[in-house]
Every structure is written in C-alpha cells, then in structure tokens.
Amino acid sequence: MDRIKEKLNSLRIEADEATAKVEDLQAKVKSLEQENLQKEQEITSLQHKNGLLEAEVEKLEGNIKDHKAIAEEGSTHSTQNEALQRRLQLLEEEAEEADKNLRETNDKLRQTDVKAGHFERKVQALESDRDQWEAKYEEMAKKYAAVQKELEDFQQEIGNI
C-alpha cells in the first residue's frame, strides 16, 4: 500500500513538473509567436524597401545601359561616356546624400514632435497654474475689498463718535 502511495505521489510530482514545463513551453511559444510576428512585419517592411531599391537599381541600370550605348557609338564619344559615368557617380552620391539627409530630417522631425509635445504639456501646466493664480487673485481682491469696506465703515463709526 505504501508503495502505491509513493508511486501516486511521485506521479503527482511528475504531473506537476510536467504542468509547469507545459506552462513554460506555452509562454515560450507565445513569446516566439510574438517574435515571429515582429519578424514578419520587419520582413514586409524590408521587402517594401527592397522593391523601392530594386526600382531605383533598374532606373540606374537603365541609365547605365543608355550611357554604354552612347559609348559604343564610337571613339569620339568616349569622352562623353566618361563624363556621363562621372555624372552617374555624382547622381548616386547625391542620392545617397539625399537618403542620409532624409533620415536625418526624419530624426529631427521626430525629435521636434517630442519637444512640441513636451512644450504643449508645459503650456497646459502653466495655464493651469495661471488659472489658479487668477482665482487666488480674485479671491484676495474680494477679501481686500471686504476689508477695505470694513475699514471705511469703522472709520465712519469712529468719525460719528
């Protein structure tokens, strides 16, 4: 009988351990599914960027093909080909610089948005403070007027005496 109880206890412990392991594995599955979703979103974003870059590459390759066709027309066009290749290189550099500037501008825009939000909250806080001070001022002005009235009444009573 004791052996059966020991066996049952060991089976319960194993079942508890298995349940804990299942819960851990379920948590890991959820985490991996979330990670997978993020990766899929990143893949979609990268595919879009890749499509844009491929279009730009096709455009640039078209430019290169045009320039090569001009260069093949004859030796007199060799200087023109060199000039076009330099121009293409400059355009690529300008495109890279434009991309860099765009990224910097986007970063600055994000920072500006953050600062604007911060200042909007600060303005709201200051407006709230102003409203409180105005309310206090109005209250003090009423008290002052009441005290002033009492003083005038008191002076009138003293004058009558």
Rank of each mutant, 00 (worst) to 15 (best):
N36A: 11
L37D: 13
Q38F: 07
K39C: 05
E40A: 06
E40I: 06
E42F: 04
E42R: 10
E42W: 03
T44Q: 12
L46W: 03
Q47A: 14
H48I: 12
K49C: 13
G51D: 13
G51N: 13
L53F: 08
E54T: 15
A55M: 06
A55H: 09
A55Q: 13
E58M: 08
L60T: 09
L60I: 05
E61F: 00
G62P: 04
G62I: 01
I64V: 03
D66C: 00
H67M: 05
H67D: 04
A69N: 02
A69K: 07
A69G: 02
A71E: 05
E73V: 10
G74I: 01
S75V: 07
S78R: 07
E82A: 07
A83N: 13
L84E: 02
L84F: 01
L88H: 08
L90T: 07
L90I: 03
E92R: 08
E93G: 09
E93T: 09
E94Y: 00
E94F: 00
E97M: 06
A98G: 01
K100V: 06
K100E: 15
R103G: 10
T105Y: 08
N106P: 00
K108W: 05
R110H: 08
R110L: 12
Q111P: 15
Q111W: 05
D113Q: 03
G117A: 07
E120M: 15
R121Q: 13
R121I: 08
R121T: 14
K122C: 07
V123D: 09
L126M: 04
S128Q: 14
S128Y: 07
S128C: 06
S128F: 01
R130I: 04
R130A: 09
Y137T: 15
E138D: 10
E139L: 06
E139F: 00
M140A: 11
A141Q: 14
K142A: 04
K142L: 12
K143I: 11
K143D: 07
Y144I: 11
A146T: 06
Q148T: 13
K149S: 11
E150K: 15
L151V: 15
E152Q: 11
